[in-house]
Design a protein around this nucleic acid. Structure first.
Lengths: 228, 228, 228, 228
DNA sequence: GATGAATGAGTTTTCATTCAT
DNA sequence: GATGAATGAAAACTCATTCAT
């Protein structure tokens, strides 16, 4: 079979990336050695250089992959969101705080990569464009809300709401990082919606539920905005 | 002089800690080698093991020192704050976003140490109590504000405001970490106060200035709340 | 060839062990550094940790090897010995004092490893069983001699002869260690046989030659009993 | 007081030597570092170089001291021995196997120093003369025994008995070194006397007791011949 | 004389990378 | 292509010695 080799090749690449991410999450970047990686992946030493040309590239690829996965989930989530701006924002917030996205592994990985400047630039570089798209979507939603609220957005309320919401989510991630045991997803969501409800009382309720419209059903299954 | 030697000893310890922090800020933890440290400190190799018993301990001590410095500055700042809860909160927010606290060096250090769980737990051990104290002070301020606002705090508004404010600050630090060039302190403060103004319109203005009272004068010169 | 690499691997392991033994014999344990070892072996630094996981393990392996070699030679020697108990004992004594076994290198190595309890216990662990076996063989021989002598062994003559013979050999090794120049193998053998001749006059002569039987021909070519 | 300083000086020298011997006995030579020594001695770092001019010299001095002590005890013991040659030999044998001389500390020290050729030669230099003297005394005793036995010593029986006895003692020390737990002083003495009884039945009994004469009373209190 | 902080040469160890098989 | 033994530069650490106090 022709594609068998190619398929195996991709399988090995993914195994290595997965091994890096597992190790980074469990042991941290500085203890993620080549030996650690190949042991987790169950592959040979040479594989890393064969497929990625070196450890650094592999780690970059893993960082890239992790970020990619995050944003992909996020955009998929938005596809399923309702039309109302409140729904879209709630979906992002709830998604970003969901077990599937906000868990020890992801948080450790995310902060580990951010912690080392070398990788930081690489991650930042590629995630900025995509992050911009997400930011744009949230901003659109808030713009609509502001418009619906009838007040002119001269003072940049939509932009500030966007920035603030993303900052709040970041802050919640940090909470989780530092105290995964005592972190309470419901509380985190409630706080964010409390802030939003204060700014847009007609659109968000204290409960964090979208106010006037009916609930859209399905719980969010994937991540939401993080990188600012 | 008698204490000259003892004094010198302490000086060297501090020099080593400073060198670690400089290196971590500039190069990241994984490139902070013993050679790098002693070169920056202008001291001898053996010194690290003499005073700290190994590189790891030195790095931990540096993390500890950094955290301590942060909380010290923060608490000092609160000593100078006015009596009104608004003033106290504003001082923390503005302090935490001030050049003196929120700068590339500090942010890099802070995130570098958080990036690896080993350092994270080591910092957590001693910083949680101090963080709790700070959090308590902010919570007190918001409680007074809620009380003054006349609404019963059945729904935990004070607690949520505390949590939310700290999360927002965290989010702003992350903003700074990822985009130190385009970060705008004024904007960051404005957004936070916009959220607070929405929740407590009688106490916070959109400008981020304390509403009714006269300004307390001097702008904050030191750090404020971060660790959740 | 298929096994070429595996073969080379084992070759290198052996080269390292040999280098350790050479160095220990010539310079002593404390001057047997990693640099010294790899220089003698003509191999790379990393090899030691690759094959043995550290210098300490390598040194232990060398001690093990040395001990093993000694007992192997000894047991091989006994295979070639005649049937009479005198012959067997003489072979052990002469073998243990032979140039091939009792030489500067071996003695230095033997005492160097014994000098530090760490190595001592490590050797003891595996050599005690073999030593016991050897001791058993000597004891058998003496038992037969005692029986042939017609006296009942109520007083433990065979056991004491065994213990005493081994102690004498040990003592001769120490002689050699301290004065390799003036050590006289013939004299050493003569003294041992003088003691044995005194105890078992019908079986051992002053000359150290087996008394009644004809000589078995070949001179012993390998080591004999030492470890108590 | 004038001699106070001088007295203290000597006290410190002895403390250092004692610390070295303790450490060598417990940890072995290679783990006997300057730090270890001064900690045990409770003295300052500089002391070693002040009094001995360096660690090596101190270790040499300790080896010398240990050897000195051994021979001193031995010679003192002989002063108390009776006149008969049997008594003198028995005193040396029993002394050399006594708890006071043959104990874990001494054996470890003795073998540790022997294990490293550097120390070996240094000890040898000074102990050879004394060892020669001891050897001479034993030889004298055996010569008298041989003479009393009436056989001409053409075949060097006295010399061989001397050499053999010392070798047996050495062998017993090695026994003790390797298996201090199961070592049996009585058995060791019995074996040596069994050999001697076989050679000189008129002078030594199987029990290891001097044959014809009455026992001399006092148990031996100090060491006996070792260094060959 | 005594102290112990400081030094830096030398030691062990780690680890990304290479390359013969 | 895949493997894992081999490499050696660079890392962390040890430790006898020095010397200002």
């Amino acid at each position: 079979m022709a594609g068998k080799r190619e398929q195996n090749r991709e399988q090995n690449r993914q195994a290595l990336i997965g091994a890096v991410l597992d190790s980074v999450a469990e042991k941290g970047i500085s203890e993620t050695s080549v030996s650690e990686i190949i042991q987790r992946a169950g592959l040979s030493r040479g594989m890393i250089h064969l497929h990625f040309g070196g450890k650094d590239n592999l780690v970059q690829a893993a960082a890239h992959h992790s970020s990619e996965e995050y944003y992909d989930g996020l955009e998929a989530l938005l596809q399923t969101a309702g039309d109302s701006p409140q729904e879209r924002i709630e979906m992002i917030v709830r998604g970003d705080l969901s077990e599937r996205v906000l868990n020890r592994r992801n948080v450790n990985i995310w902060y580990a990569f951010r912690g080392e400047s070398r990788n930081r630039t690489a991650i930042a570089e590629h995630s900025d464009t995509r992050d911009g798209r997400l930011r744009g979507m949230i901003h659109n939603a808030f713009s609509r809300i502001v418009r619906e609220a009838g007040t002119p957005d001269a003072s940049g309320a939509a932009r500030d709401a966007t920035h603030g919401t993303l900052a709040l989510l970041e802050g919640m991630w940090t909470d989780f990082l530092l105290h995964p045991d005592r972190f309470d997803r419901e509380e985190a969501a409630r706080i964010i919606f409390r802030f939003l409800a204060a700014m847009f009382p007609a659109h968000f309720s204290l409960k964090g539920a979208v106010q006037p419209q009916q609930e859209k059903g399905a719980a969010p299954a994937a991540p939401a905005a993080s990188d600012s």
